[in-house]
Amino acid sequence: MIFSVEMIYVLMGIIVLGCSLYIFTDRTNSRRLTTGSFYLIYSITLMFGKIIPPFYIGLMVIIMVLIIAGGGLKKSEHVEESITVKEERRKRLGGRLFLPAILIPILTLAGSKLLDGVKIGGKALLDPSNVTMVALGLACLTAIIFAMVMTRGTPAGAVKESRRLLESIGWAVLLPQLLATLGTIYTNAGVGTVVSKAVTAIIPEGSLFWVVVIFCLGMAIFTMIMGNAFAAFPVMAAGIAIPFLINQFDANPNHIAAISMFAGYCGTLMTPMAANFNIVPAALLDLKDKNHVIKVQVPTALAVLAFNIVLMYLLVSLGV
């Protein structure tokens, strides 16, 4: 293929590498060596993940975590520009500032819908393994060039601004990848089977209502533990949905599927294990309480979860 997923990872790695170089040379940061090393190692894992043997990537990940644990990751002081300076710049460009920002979703959509499957000289234009991601990468690349021309910015300036954002996210940037790793280890260690056995052991076989309650709650709780509803579905469906709901109570599998995945998503809204949705945004928005987003989501999640239980019970018992 012409544009592969690996290229986007290399692009991400280059951005992080640039940030680490700025940090290494920042004398105001007392931990610039360890902080810089953290981002340097991270950039290497992004760029060369496919080439370096997994054992060494694993070691590098552990070194990064040790840097975090030892307090070696320190945010640099960034001088906030005064409101008047920002206001001056804002006035210069005004509404045009929205253009590059809006360009990202538009180009991503256009790229992933229109260029999917397009071939040039027998080669796929966008990597078929993850079209959306490649489209997003290319959209960002286009938008950055556009933004640089418009604001008369330089690549160095763009990296400097990336560094400000990356440092404000801090160690949380690693969390989604670490949690996915944890999920893999859990699966290999058989955590899923243990949980599903525990849940099926408490199932009251005769009562449809309680089977539905335990199934939906189980989807939510399992998702909260694993951080991912996709991991919960096969386990809970094999343990409860097929033997009890579908075989015993004759439920429609389409209803079960639709509602159970949403029950799982209610769990996603309530767990720090879904870092990409709950913890990273808190860091991105400079929230003091890292669980603030989760706290806001809990009431909606519980209401929707209750609705799912009632809906599933009604659909199965009425035999719709």
Partner: peptide, 10 residues
């Protein structure tokens, strides 16, 4: 990470 340069600059 890939969105940071654009967003930062803007």
């Amino acid at each position: 990470i890939v969105t940071l340069p654009v967003i930062g600059l803007l």
